[in-house]
Simulated assay, not measured.
Amino acid sequence: MNVMHTAKITARVSATRARSSAPARAPIAKRAASTTTRVYSPPNGSIDFGSVDEISGSVDADQDLRAAMVERDTAETLRRTIAAMGGAPVQDPAAFISTPEQRLQTSILFGSCAALCARGVVGVHENILASGGGDDPLAYASLLAAAVGAWWLSDLGTGIFHWSVDNYGSKQTPVMGDVIDAFQGHHKYPWTITKRQFANNTHTTCPATSCVTIPLLLTPDLGPNACVFMGVFCSMVVLSQQFHAWSHAKKSELPALVIAAQDAGLVISRKAHGQHHKPPFEGRYCIVSGWWNDALDGSGVLKRAERFIYDTTGVAARCWTEATFNVQEEAPEGWGNDIIR
Rank of each mutant, 00 (worst) to 15 (best):
M1N: 02
V3D: 14
A7Y: 11
A11T: 10
S14E: 00
A18H: 07
S20E: 15
A24L: 11
R25N: 01
I28F: 13
A29C: 09
K30W: 08
A33L: 11
A33E: 09
T36K: 14
V39D: 03
Y40I: 06
P42V: 12
P43Y: 09
P43Q: 11
N44Y: 08
G45E: 14
F49E: 07
G50Y: 07
S51H: 11
G57P: 13
D62P: 03
Q63C: 13
L65S: 13
D73F: 15
T74E: 08
E76K: 10
T77V: 14
V90N: 06
Q91R: 00
F96M: 01
P100W: 07
R103W: 11
I108V: 15
C113W: 05
L116W: 04
L116V: 14
G123E: 02
E126P: 01
L129N: 10
G133K: 11
L138F: 15
A139L: 10
A141W: 13
S142E: 09
L144C: 13
L144N: 11
A146K: 04
D155Q: 11
D155R: 06
K171A: 15
V175G: 00
G177C: 07
K188G: 09
Y189A: 10
P190D: 03
I193D: 01
N200F: 08
C206H: 12
C206R: 07
T219V: 14
V228Q: 00
F229S: 03
F229Y: 12
M230P: 00
F233N: 01
L239N: 02
S240M: 01
Q242E: 15
H244C: 05
H244F: 03
W246A: 08
E253N: 09
A256M: 12
A256H: 12
A261V: 05
I268M: 13
R270D: 03
R270C: 04
A272V: 14
H276P: 02
K278E: 03
P279W: 12
E282K: 01
V288N: 00
W291S: 09
L296F: 06
G298V: 00
S299M: 02
S299Q: 04
S299K: 01
S299H: 01
E306A: 03
R307E: 03
R307V: 07
R307K: 10
Y310F: 15
G314F: 10
R318E: 13
C319G: 05
C319A: 12
T321S: 12
W335I: 03
R341Y: 04
